[in-house]
Design a protein around this nucleic acid. Sequence first.
RNA 1: CGGGAUGUAGCGCAGUUGGUAGCGCACUACGUUCGGGACGUAGGGGUCGUCCGUUCGAGUCGGAUCAUCCCGACCA
Length: 492
Amino acid sequence: MADQITKRSENYSQWYSDLVMKADLAEQSAVRGCMVIKPYGYAIWEKMQRTLDDMFKATGHTNAYFPLFIPKSFFSKEAEHVAGFAKECAVVTHHRLMNDPEGKGVVVDPAAKLEEELIVRPTSETIIWSTYKNWITSWRDLPILCNQWANVVRWEMRTRLFLRTAEFLWQEGHTAHATSQEAIEETQRMVQVYADFARNFLALPVIVGHKSPNERFAGALDTMTIEAMMQDGKALQAGTSHFLGQNFAKSFDVMYTSKEGKQEYVWATSWGVSTRLMGALIMAHGDDNGLVLPPALAPIQVVMVPIFKTAEEHEAILDKMYELKKALEAKGHSVKIDDRDTLRPGFKFAEWELKGVPVRLAMGPRDLAAGTVEVHRRDTLEKKTMELAGLENSIEGLLDDIQANIYKKAFDFRESRVEKCDSWEEFKEKIGTGKFLLCHWDGTPETEQAIKDATKATIRCIPEDSFVCEEEGKDIFSGKPSSRRVVFGIAY
RNA sequence: CGGGAUGUAGCGCAGUUGGUAGCGCACUACGUUCGGGACGUAGGGGUCGUCCGUUCGAGUCGGAUCAUCCCGACCA
């Protein structure tokens, strides 16, 4: 197991893109750095969306939609924000094409130049805050708790399928509050929603914590994160929740009249997760046979493969399967019967494993006669023959067990790769071997930068729920005093 | 934008000293198969990334250009 992981991480990037392609989740588009999400991949995303959306609603949020295009002037109001995104924006300058007078196809009509360029949103803070300005006048209008499901475009220098594509799908929550306290609570609440989602649905153990100032979102006073570890020991930022203070309210002049009749700036948060979560899922749980999907998230939880020689056998087995399917669906499970008669069973087994379906049931003439079915679980690849009678009850338990086991496996893996480190020599040695190192840090951006320059490692987070070690010590690099350890790692 | 590599069938690749393009997978048809990615037979599929040059002749040599991937800087 350990060897396998080490071996895999040597060529992890290759393994990962192979897996995506073979499992048929997504592919590179003809458009630079963009991806086509294929139906099965999109089904996984939809399930994430539905689950998260329910969690947002349960915490009092509602959905809205804001425009794709942001006038350049809006975008430049918050200085830090623009500095953070300026280098990676797609800009619309014209609104019409024409036939080339020299007959070379279609060209941009120079007469159709826009007076003010439009920016394709890299994130929507600016357009949302310029809208909120009109929505907010009194303390009675607060809080505003909106979420948007959308696509955004960031013209990254280098792209990677799922992890960093030029266009990606995400949700972005944007809230406005009367007090700093409320906004900070919201920031905490939402990072906790993400942590629950990651742990309970993605079976992804994450560390909740604060970002260091260097890693903070452009324009935020505080950024909270959920950090996950992939199977090669690298860190992946899986979701963020930002406390924006009054920066955007001041830039966009969003004020309300308080109960006392005074004009006050509102307090803001924003929070988001993206299709990157699918990359996290693939890299955290996948094995050499393909994807391993946690049952809570799998678009298909149980797949049934009939094994037959003759059409009569096929029919008889399918009859039994439809019966079983009904019983499983009554329990709330999603079930697929693979009744394709042009493919052999072995091929189907391999294919559904590649797609990560948690449980596979195979039934052939032998099973039909004996009233049994072969049950295969994706996480451990174990097979056993079980009685058909009352199977729906054992499947329910099995799915729960798989969910728990996938989490435990990822959790144990991470535990085995987190350690305290107090020596700079040791740090340099170990950080490249796929570990999270808990180290003392003096709290200065300069030290963090120096460590990054020397080792590529960054502070993944200042942990708040796992690995909290508040204790006196000395900075790993500068030797200056520190009152707590932070998590260092190499990030994707 | 710096450093490296690669562009040949849908995908993965081979192609020698320049001589008119091939292999595996996939695809189509028929037959035999079917409890862990079947096999046989017969087929279909290509302006060799693009442009210019050298040559009787270029996938192959030279130049330019475009694109993609990897390593840096940037990033959810």
